[in-house]
Simulated assay, not measured.
Amino acid sequence: MSLLVSALDLPTSCRVDQRVPKKMLAENGAATSADKRLINDSIEEIQWLAALKPNTVGVSEYSDDQREYLEVAVLSITARYAPQGEGANATNKPVNTTRLAELVHRAVPYPVLLLLAAPQGLFLSLAHKCSAQNEVGKVVLDGEPATVKVALDLTAKYPFVQALALPRQPQANFLALYQGWMDCLTAWEAMQYTGSFTMTETPAQAVTRRSALHRCRDLDVQIASLRSAASKEKQIARQVAANLEIKALLAERQQVATDI
């Protein structure tokens, strides 16, 4: 995690470096007993690393009818295995990193860049926010958080690491800056399909890439499901039909991947 914190190149003017009690997260982000259990059992430590504000990083606030980006919070969480069962039968339960990241984004009223170190790997997570339609003054998530697993063998010279630096993000306002980090995560996900890390050059290209990635993920789920069903199918005709459908989906996936 220290490599990614350094890679962000955050100025000392915005650093907070303050521990946050997980009780605060449980009170503000956990709507159910299962969520509270996830927070209490899985989190080892929460650190508020930095508060990006106009007077600390020289970037302007953003405001329109749907959202206010007055500042951006940078947080880190160290998570641990949650024990399941008791005594000799106790096992280590994997951390639900997707849900944990979502709870953090819901609990903090500002957009968050979250660094999450869990037993199963290192994750980065971001989520756009907007005003709630039915409750004045309330902020909600604008779509699902983007939570991606990052390779542990990255070096300071890796393009993805270099791309995260704060000075490399758009500086027009906090919405543009935050979207710059979001595009970094999208480029990392795209690399899993293309084999190389490249940033998009225009907002339109970024939108096209995100749409293509979403469609490819959906197609991968469908293909995996069909393959599983086909392997269990005993009727030849249905096996043939499933294989033809898989072939068509693979062709579509190959075509969609050209936009990544």
Rank of each mutant, 00 (worst) to 15 (best):
R106L: 02
R106T: 06
R106S: 08
R106Y: 00
R106M: 04
A107F: 04
V108P: 00
V108A: 01
Y110H: 07
Y110C: 01
Y110I: 06
P111D: 15
P111C: 14
P111A: 14
P111F: 12
L113E: 07
L113H: 10
L113F: 15
L114W: 10
L115S: 09
L115D: 08
L116Q: 11
L116V: 09
A118W: 10
P119N: 07
P119D: 10
Q120K: 03
G121P: 02
L122D: 04
L122V: 11
L122Y: 13
F123Y: 15
F123E: 06
F123D: 10
F123V: 03
L124M: 14
S125L: 04
L126M: 14
L126W: 06
L126H: 11
L126F: 13
A127V: 02
A127F: 06
A127Y: 01
H128K: 13
K129S: 01
K129W: 02
C130Q: 15
S131C: 03
A132V: 04
A132L: 01
Q133A: 11
Q133C: 01
Q133L: 06
Q133V: 02
N134L: 09
N134A: 08
N134M: 06
N134R: 05
E135C: 03
E135V: 11
G137S: 05
K138M: 13
V139Y: 04
V140T: 15
L141P: 00
L141N: 04
L141F: 00
D142Q: 12
D142P: 07
D142K: 13
G143V: 01
G143K: 02
G143C: 02
G143R: 02
G143S: 04
E144M: 14
P145E: 05
P145T: 09
A146H: 09
T147S: 05
T147Y: 00
T147K: 00
T147R: 00
V148A: 12
V148C: 06
K149I: 11
K149E: 13
V150F: 08
A151V: 06
L152P: 00
D153S: 12
D153Q: 12
T155M: 08
T155H: 05
A156P: 03
A156Q: 14
K157W: 04
K157M: 15
Y158F: 05
Y158K: 08
Y158A: 14
P159Y: 06
P159T: 06
F160H: 09
F160K: 09
F160V: 08
F160T: 05
V161W: 02
V161E: 04
V161S: 07
Q162C: 12
Q162E: 14
Q162F: 01
A163P: 10
L164C: 13
L164I: 05
L164Y: 09
A165G: 14
A165S: 15
L166G: 08
P167G: 12
P167R: 15
Q169S: 04
P170A: 08
P170V: 04
P170D: 07
P170I: 03
Q171Y: 00
Q171E: 07
Q171W: 00
A172I: 11
N173Y: 00
N173Q: 08
N173M: 01
F174S: 01
F174M: 11
L175E: 14
L175T: 13
A176V: 03
L177Q: 13
L177K: 07
Y178T: 05
Y178E: 03
Q179A: 13
Q179G: 09
Q179T: 15
Q179D: 13
W181M: 09
W181F: 12
M182Y: 04
D183N: 12
D183Y: 03
C184P: 02
L185A: 14
T186Q: 11
T186N: 10
W188N: 01
W188P: 00
